[in-house]
Design a protein around this nucleic acid. Structure first.
Lengths: 204, 204
DNA sequence: TTTTTTTAATAAACACGTTTACTCAGAAAA
DNA sequence: TTTTCTGAGTAAACGTGTTTATTAAAAAAA
C-alpha cells in the first residue's frame, strides 16, 4: 500500500464519518454535499470522486449498521418457536432499528429501491442476499414438513419480502404508526400468508 | 367564471398537454421544466405556480390514464371465476398498461410512493381508493363463504396490494422481465397467499 | 369613471447535485 | 538523479428544480 493509497483511504473515511453524523442529525434532504464537504475538510468534488453521487454516499453511510442490526436479529431468532415467530422476530427487530431515524431510512429506501438495473447496488445487493437467506429458511421448513413441498420457496421468500417492505413503508411514511402497531399488522398479514385466507376446499 | 379564471384554466391545460407529450417521449428525468415551459409557451415559474413541483406535474399528467386503465380492467373482471382469477386479471391488466412505458411509471412510483404524509396526494389518494375497493371485494367473498370470516379484509387487501406493488416493482426495474412472466409470478404468489403455504394443521 | 385590490405570469436569482478542466505531489521509468 | 506518468484533489462552472420580487391586467370598490 503506497502513501497515496493510504491518504485516499483516509480521505474516504473522513468523508464517511462527516456524512454519517450530518445525515443522522439533519436528515439526508436537509444536508448538502457542500455541508458534508466543509465538515470533512475536503471539496465537494472530492466527495463525488469517492462516492459517485449523494445516494451512494448515503448508502455507504448506513449499510454497515443495517447489516449489523440484521445479524443481531438473526442471532436472537427463536428457532424453536416456528416459522411465524421467527419471521415476526426478524421483522420486529428491523422495525425497531429503523424507528431510530425513520425519516433517514425512508429517504434511503426512496432513493435506492426504484433505481433500474441496480445502479446504486449496495442496498439492493444486500436485500437479495437476505432474500436468499429467507428462501433457505423456508426450504428447511419444508424438510421439517411444516411448509408444503409444492410451495416454491424463492417466490415464498419474495412474498415475505414484499409484505415486509410494504408494512415498513407504512411505518416510515406514517409518524403516527408505532413500531408495536406495525409489527402487529405484519404478524396478522404473515399469518394470513402462511395459513391462507380461503376457507378449506375453496383453493383455486 | 371570470375571464381571468378562464385563461388560468387554459394555461394549465397548455402546460398539461405539453408535459404529457414530453414526459412520454423523453422520459421524466430527461425532460426539464424549462423544456416543457418552452413547449407550452409559458415561463418555467408559471409551471410551478400551477403544479407546485415537477412530481405533482408528473402525477397530473398520468393519473387520469391510470384511472381509466383501472376502470377498464374492472369492467372486464371475470367475476364468475373466483377471487384468484379476478385479482390476477386486474393485476395482469395493470401490468400491460404500465408496460407501455415502464421507465416513466417507474419514476412516477419512485417519486410518489415514499413521500411522507402524502405530500403529493394525487397518486396515494388513488391507491387508497383502490385498496378500499379490494377490501370490499374480499368482504363480499366472505359472505359467499369462499374467504374465511376471521380474515381481516382491510389487512388482506393491504397484503394483496403489497404483493402487487412488489411484483410491479420487479417489472418496472427489470427490462428483461416480461409482462407474462411477471403475471405468472404474481399468480403463484397470490395462490400461495390465498391457500397458505403451510401444511394443514401446522398453522400458528 | 376613478381608485384600489387582487392575482396570473414572469424574469431573475438561488440552491444544490454534478461535471469539467486543471494542478501538483507522488510513483514509475529512464 | 532526472524525467515522465499517474491520479487524488479541487476550483469553477453547469444544469435544473424552485423561490423571490415585480409587473400589469383584470376585478372589485368607491
Amino acid at each position: 500500500m503506497s502513501r497515496r493509497d493510504d491518504s485516499k483511504i483516509e480521505t474516504r473515511e473522513l468523508i464517511l464519518v462527516a456524512a454519517q453524523s450530518m445525515f443522522w442529525e439533519k436528515g439526508a434532504d436537509r444536508c448538502t454535499i457542500r455541508d458534508i464537504a466543509v465538515e470533512a475538510g475536503v471539496s465537494p468534488a472530492t466527495i463525488i470522486v469517492h462516492f459517485k453521487n449523494k445516494t451512494a454516499l448515503l448508502e455507504a453511510s448506513l449499510h454497515e449498521d443495517i447489516e449489523k442490526a440484521f445479524s443481531k436479529a438473526q442471532a436472537t431468532m427463536p428457532v424453536e418457536d416456528g416459522l411465524h415467530a421467527v419471521l415476526v422476530h426478524m421483522v420486529s427487530s428491523m422495525f425497531s432499528f429503523y424507528d431510530r431515524n425513520r425519516e433517514l431510512y425512508r429517504i434511503l429506501i426512496r432513493d435506492t429501491f426504484y433505481e433500474p438495473d441496480h445502479e446504486n447496488p449496495t442496498m439492493m445487493k444486500m436485500l437479495e442476499e437476505k432474500l436468499q437467506l429467507i428462501a433457505i429458511m423456508i426450504e428447511q421448513e419444508k424438510s421439517k414438513g411444516t411448509v408444503r413441498n409444492d410451495a416454491e420457496s424463492s417466490l415464498a421468500a419474495s412474498s415475505f419480502f414484499f409484505l415486509y417492505i410494504g408494512v415498513l413503508g407504512d411505518l416510515l411514511r406514517d409518524p403516527e404508526l408505532s413500531v408495536t402497531a406495525a409489527t402487529g399488522r405484519f404478524s396478522v398479514i404473515l399469518d394470513q400468508h402462511l395459513t391462507g385466507i380461503l376457507t378449506l376446499g375453496a383453493g383455486s
